[in-house]
Nucleic acid binder design. Structure first.
Lengths: 159, 159
DNA sequence: AAGTCGTGGATACCTTACATCTACGTTAGA
DNA sequence: TCTAACGTAGATGTAAGGTATCCACGACTT
């Protein structure tokens, strides 16, 4: 079980956009260089975030991405669902209905107990992520770094 | 993010062993046929469960696998850790220290806020799985099916 | 009108999980 | 003691999904 690294990219970019002071959008090139990421591939994930309604994309010169909502209204779960999808990592193959010991259809009216347990665990995971918003994360960024980022993007986002 | 299907196999096999009445071990062939699984590949996962101390393997004729502990002392998490490993699905690549916006080492004394959130979510997931034992799962198997399995393995496990 | 930027599709690569086979060591029973 | 049944371990091949890039297109600002 592994989470795509695009999740980390998306979270850090969203966090950076939450730190940025202004309504001025950050181009994908700036985001990519800020974290040393491949620009073309990062674009895919930024697209996903925009499609999910978390980011707003402005085309044209001096365009780029900005948060579509206040940072307090975007949760970590929102970002994960946009990039990784909301599906459970456990996909029940219903092997209880296969082989010589197959359960009969009338014995499978209730969902498989094993699948239920996995679903509950997945929900616990999601609840934990839903409880954290971007602005809560911003507060945990070291102040010196936060100041540096604010200054960097305040006047001239292209540097 | 996807969980290997070996997890489902391992859980169902452990559950079946918990249902089996006796100390008589079930050979891997029987387990594989009971669920219609490839025997050679299932052996890999059964090995992992045995290495983790959840199952006890008896070699020789009339050998096979049985639970190494009472079903009430084996949790779903035990099985998952044995087959899938206990590692977090999120692996922090520390991209905050890369690129033009790299954080300085003295700004990284505390773990990355994003990584912390992911770790907590993973712990919530694990706690949810740790709370369920095999004998709790046995109780949720339909009675008709449980009876059938008990009868099947009571006298002659090789059928 | 032109250049900058995001969009979406097509494509290739590469890691990892899936699956199988073979050779080997061990044990219960004839 | 011998042997057949069983689990162990490693090597190997295959399939799928994530990673990464490129290009043609449309939209917007200057």
């Amino acid at each position: 079980m592994k989470l795509s690294e695009g999740v980390e990219w998306g979270l850090h970019c969203a966090l950076l956009l939450a730190e940025a002071p202004a309504r001025v959008p950050l181009p994908r090139r700036v985001l990519a260089e800020h974290y040393g990421l491949p620009e073309a591939y990062l674009a895919k994930h930024l697209q996903a975030l925009a499609r999910a309604g978390l980011l707003h994309a402005t085309p044209g010169p001096s365009g780029g991405f900005r948060l579509a909502r206040p940072a307090g209204e975007i949760t970590v779960l929102d970002v994960l669902d946009a990039i990784e999808g909301a599906a459970s990592p456990f996909i029940c193959q219903e092997i209880r209905q296969q082989g010589t010991g197959a359960a009969r259809p009338e014995e499978c009216t209730r969902p498989c107990a094993i699948a239920s347990v996995m679903v509950r665990a997945h929900q616990a995971w999601r609840e934990s992520l839903r409880a954290v918003t971007l602005d809560q994360l911003v507060k945990r960024v070291p102040q010196t770094l936060r100041k540096r980022n604010r200054a960097k993007f305040a006047s001239n986002p292209s540097t």
